[in-house]
């Protein structure tokens, strides 16, 4: 599992950050590898498309217009299905990467398996509750965030499975028909539809929170969090605790 850290093949030389905010000199650390970043953006973009088209599928607002021949909902559904394929593959890739990728993409980032991470999790929780002034150090995801992402990935999987169940209803001759067994699990197509719809809103809430947090962290901590999901690099104090790396 301990793949040698993929040394940055000199990516666009990270600009030296102003060290003013931190106690010591900073150094660029390659945190998010290419697979993590690509799957992240694939998920973001497909989710945007899926949400827009999904809302239109649930309560259509795009209209063919009276008298005009069109294929509005038809196209919306087709786009939804293609975006769903992108989303499903991205989620799948990221899940596989959790077991095959480098350590900062590892499943241990999400499940507080080690004692240290459990301690840090409590520390982070205390920080969030303003019971301590600063969070424990974390290079990748902090243990609390990791656990939240675990839940989010759970919802992704629920979204994919309910979507597959709904798709299987009309996939009479395709291999997707095999997913029909899921209809029994979700109490029929209407049950799957309900879960799919409600989960969308939960994920939308998460997305808003996630985006706002990223903005905030980047602004407050000035460690390059926002940039990191584009470049892969965060800027962290050289003298930071390195036991999680």
């Amino acid at each position: 599992m301990v793949a040698p850290a993929r040394a940055p093949a000199t990516p666009a030389t990270p600009t030296t950050p102003t060290p003013a905010e931190h106690g010591g000199p900073l150094e660029p650390v390659y945190v998010w590898d290419l697979v993590v970043r690509l799957s992240h953006w694939a998920i973001v973009l497909s989710m945007l498309v899926l949400t827009f088209t999904g809302i239109d599928i649930a309560r259509p607002f795009l209209h063919g217009g009276s008298g005009k021949a069109g294929f509005t909902t038809g196209y919306v559904r087709v786009i939804h299905f293609y975006a769903a394929q992108v989303f499903s593959l991205a989620v799948l890739a990221r899940l596989v990467w959790m077991f095959t990728g480098p350590r900062r993409s590892d499943w241990r980032q999400f499940i507080p398996a080690s004692a240290q991470r459990r301690r840090d999790m409590i520390g982070t929780l205390k920080f969030y509750l303003m019971l301590r002034p600063s969070p424990p150090p974390a290079t990748g995801h902090n243990p609390m965030a990791g656990l939240m992402y675990l839940g989010v990935f759970g919802l992704y999987v629920l979204m994919i499975l309910t979507g597959f169940a709904l798709y299987s209803v009309s996939a009479y001759t395709s291999y997707m028909h095999g997913w029909q067994f899921l209809l029994g699990v979700f109490h029929g197509a209407q049950g799957a539809r309900w879960l799919h719809h409600v989960t969308m809103w939960v994920l939308l809430c998460f997305a808003v929170q996630h985006f706002a947090s990223a903005l905030l962290t980047a602004r407050v901590e000035k460690n390059g969090t926002l940039d990191s999901i584009f470049t892969g690099y965060k800027f962290l104090p050289k003298d930071r605790r390195k036991d999680d790396e």
Partner: peptide
């Protein structure tokens, strides 16, 4: 300010603000 407060937090003197938050 972080150094100042960190000093008060006796149990975790090594703490630095790093990539905490929610990312």
């Amino acid at each position: 300010e972080s150094k100042a407060v960190a000093a008060k937090a006796a149990d975790e003197p090594a703490d630095k603000p790093t990539a905490g938050g929610a990312s």
